[in-house]
Amino acid sequence: MPAANPSRSCSLLAACWAGGALLWAACSSAADDPRVWVDRMNQALATRNYDGVLVHQLGDRQDTLRIIHRIQDGHLTERLLSADGSGREFVRSDNELVSYFPDRRIVVVERRSRSLGFIGGLPGVDANSYTQYDLGDAEPAMVQGRPTRLVSIRPRDSYRYGYRLWIDEKTNMPVQTQLFAGDGTIIEQNTFASLSLPARIEEPLLRSQLPTDGYRWLRREPPQFKPGEKVSWAAQALPPGFRRTGVGGGEVSNKPVSHLLFSDGLVTVSVFIESAETPPALSRNGTPRKADGPAQLGAAAAFTAHIDGYRVTAVGEVPPLTVRLIAESLRPQPEAGAASPVAPVR
């Protein structure tokens, strides 16, 4: 028996050590888990008031905007003021966006389908994200002397972009974000030059102070899509990881348009399908405009293909190849009822 004691105490020690190590690992993984930090950031963006100066960089274009964002009683109000000397302002109240262009003396009122701020979170980061993206630990990083966590979400292939988020440790706000390609090229960057999180934001700060006398007031009716409508289109072969996540139907300028959504869990690509028989829209000077082939709209790539008498346009913040593959993979289904599930290629 005497020999058993040391052995038992050894295994006890080992068990304690292993338990301790596990506990430590659990604690450290929760503290460094990128998903935890992204959740905190999403929560902060969805619930906090903020007022800051934001530098938005896209290519060689750089815009400096003051952004005042308020969530009060479940309602979103947001005001963006451009610092480019034009005096342009954008005021969002839930589903409505009012854009002021004092240099053109016009105001444009638009209805949007969802109530979202201009700075969105990154929903959809979960265990499945690891298939398409490489998520490292949320590493401590100093940004302008403030402790932040850097969450790097790197694409595993060239069909999608990656994200870098510098999340403030104290407030969970993204003090800097980058959208980057797999080769390291930075596509878009947002940086807060200053940021405050006031408990209250008074109404006047959220209202444009521009004198709009003599301005033209215009309304833009963007397509309104009803989710869940049957769309008899299917994708033949999607880029890896993408699957259909939503379907809607609607009208644009009195012609029916289908809206399909494809996502890899993080990024969403919209596909709009309209009959190609309708005449092409006219430009301001009355000449028809070509809208076929590739286009780049800020960080979003677009591609329009003609398929079986339809114009199919894919738009998304993905590499140009991805929107092209998605647009060209779509085919009308012979039976409207047989909306077969989209078969992703893996």
Binding site: L54, H56, L58, R61, D63, L65, L80, F90, E110, R112, S113, R114, L116, F118, I119, G120, G121, L122, Y161, Y163, P174, T177, L179, E188, N190, R220, P222, P223, F225, V252, S253, H259, L261, L266, V267, T268, S270, F272, P280, A281, L282, S283, R289, K290, A291, A295, L297, G298, A299, A300, A302, T304, T313, V315, G316, E317
Partner: peptide, 25 residues
Amino acid sequence: PAPLVNYVVAHSEYASPGARLSSLS
């Protein structure tokens, strides 16, 4: 072109973080 504007506007509601700013841009 005008047809794309509609689609960009409609898509911007699903755009990646920050990318909603690029339509403003």
